[in-house]
Simulated scan of single mutants.
Amino acid sequence: MAKFAAAERAAAAAGWRYVVVTGWCRHVAVGLDTLSARRRPVVDRLGLHGELLELAAERPRRFGDLVEATSLPAVARAHAVHLL
Rank of each mutant, 00 (worst) to 15 (best):
M1I: 06
M1V: 07
M1S: 06
A2E: 02
A2H: 01
K3C: 05
K3A: 10
F4L: 14
F4D: 11
A5I: 08
A5K: 08
A6T: 07
A6R: 05
A7C: 09
A7Q: 11
A7N: 08
A7I: 03
E8N: 02
E8D: 10
E8C: 05
R9A: 11
A10I: 07
A10C: 07
A11L: 11
A11P: 07
A12Q: 15
A13C: 08
A14N: 06
G15Q: 07
W16H: 12
W16A: 12
W16L: 15
R17C: 08
R17H: 15
R17E: 15
Y18N: 00
Y18R: 00
V19H: 07
V19A: 09
V20G: 01
V21L: 01
T22N: 09
G23T: 11
W24E: 10
W24I: 05
W24S: 10
C25I: 15
H27E: 13
H27F: 09
H27L: 09
H27V: 07
V28R: 12
V28C: 09
A29W: 09
A29S: 13
A29H: 11
V30W: 00
V30P: 00
V30H: 00
V30E: 02
V30Q: 00
G31S: 12
G31E: 13
G31Y: 06
D33P: 02
D33T: 15
D33I: 14
T34W: 00
L35A: 08
L35S: 05
L35V: 04
L35E: 06
L35Y: 04
S36M: 11
S36W: 13
S36F: 13
A37L: 06
A37P: 02
R38M: 09
R38Y: 13
R39S: 11
R39F: 14
R40E: 13
P41D: 14
V43M: 12
V43D: 15
V43N: 13
V43F: 14
D44W: 01
D44V: 01
D44F: 01
D44P: 04
R45F: 04
L46T: 04
L46E: 12
G47I: 06
L48T: 02
G50H: 07
G50D: 11
G50Q: 02
E51R: 03
E51N: 03
L52S: 03
L53S: 08
L53T: 08
L55N: 05
L55R: 08
A56D: 04
A57D: 12
E58D: 09
R59K: 08
R59I: 00
P60L: 11
R61I: 02
R61L: 10
R61C: 04
R61S: 01
F63T: 04
F63N: 14
F63R: 15
D65F: 03
D65G: 15
V67I: 10
V67G: 01
E68A: 10
A69W: 00
T70L: 02
T70D: 02
S71W: 03
S71I: 12
L72V: 04
L72M: 06
P73T: 05
A74F: 10
A74H: 15
A74T: 14
A74M: 13
V75N: 06
V75E: 00
V75Q: 07
V75I: 10
A76G: 01
A76N: 01
A76T: 02
A78T: 10
A78M: 05
H79V: 05
H79I: 03
A80C: 08
V81C: 08
V81Y: 03
L83A: 01
L83R: 02
L83P: 04
